[in-house]
Design a protein around this nucleic acid. Structure first.
Lengths: 141, 141
DNA sequence: ATTCTTATTGCAACTTTTTACAATAGTATA
DNA sequence: TATACTATTGTAAAAAGTTGCAATAAGAAT
């Protein structure tokens, strides 16, 4: 749980508390390195903290998202998955084999500026997932 | 239900059938002009076709999506909403007042090309929603 | 018009996600 | 170290969404 201290400070600075439940969930996300569904988070965090409930997992994932410690992604399955918040990025997923790759956020910078000047909005966030065919799956077309 | 014929032909061409259930749901989407949640679709379509079940609504929305007649959008609420498929577009939503505006797809064309050449993927689809502050809500900051 | 094929539906059971509320437990302060 | 404040949790129940399967009905063929 060596990853805990910075998270605890961030929460406390906002008037929230660090709890064993949040710690277990953060730990799972932090060390997983990939997207996890709420039930995957629940199963893994339960190992570290027996007695954890699914209700708490859902609530905590939403809470961490609101506070910038986790990021949800809609990967086309109809359900949200979560990952630890780190560098801002997006995803590109193959509709056939399911292979995923990251899309650097700076590729969207130009678009962001263009959108802001056209719309008058100030952009703060985005949910972006691209779907397509990876090089391998294009061959088998 | 004057909007039915073209839809029926599209489905039949793919080996599927037009049914009263699908017609009612398409009708609701077609004439709504905005995003609807599955339960909103259910309620409205039920008026036209009493006896319709929620199961069928969920299944039909997914079916229409797969066949290009409806489009799902993830609007940041954690739940999918649907609209009739027409011109391809994306969304920009104010995180405070909820106001939504459309983003033309051609604004993403450059990004698409860039992504394709960098990744080797062929892009076929995307789930894109931008979140920000609309001009009005920026004032109240 | 009738028959046949099978895509589609409704039902019922099940899983996932959300909500309300009382009990618990972080953490700031004395 | 003890106390107080209130953020957070677990419980239970409701709501939303999914799945398997037998019955139905769209539409092609006769």
């Amino acid at each position: 749980m060596s990853c805990a201290q910075p998270y605890a400070l961030q929460l406390r600075a906002r008037g929230y508390r660090m709890t064993p439940q949040r710690l277990a969930i953060l730990h799972v996300l932090h060390h997983s390195g990939k997207h996890l569904s709420p039930s995957e988070v629940y199963q893994q965090a339960c190992v570290e903290l027996p007695g954890l409930t699914e209700t708490t997992v859902y609530r905590t994932l939403e809470f961490l998202t609101e506070n910038g410690l986790a990021r949800p992604a809609y990967m086309g399955s109809g359900h949200l998955v979560y990952e630890i918040a780190g560098h801002e990025h997006h995803h590109l997923k193959c509709r056939i084999c399911g292979h995923e790759m990251e899309v650097r956020h700076d590729l969207l910078k130009t678009l962001y500026r263009q959108l802001e000047s056209e719309s008058g909005y100030r952009l703060t966030d985005s949910h972006v997932t691209f779907i397509g065919l990876c090089p391998d799956c294009q061959k088998g077309e």
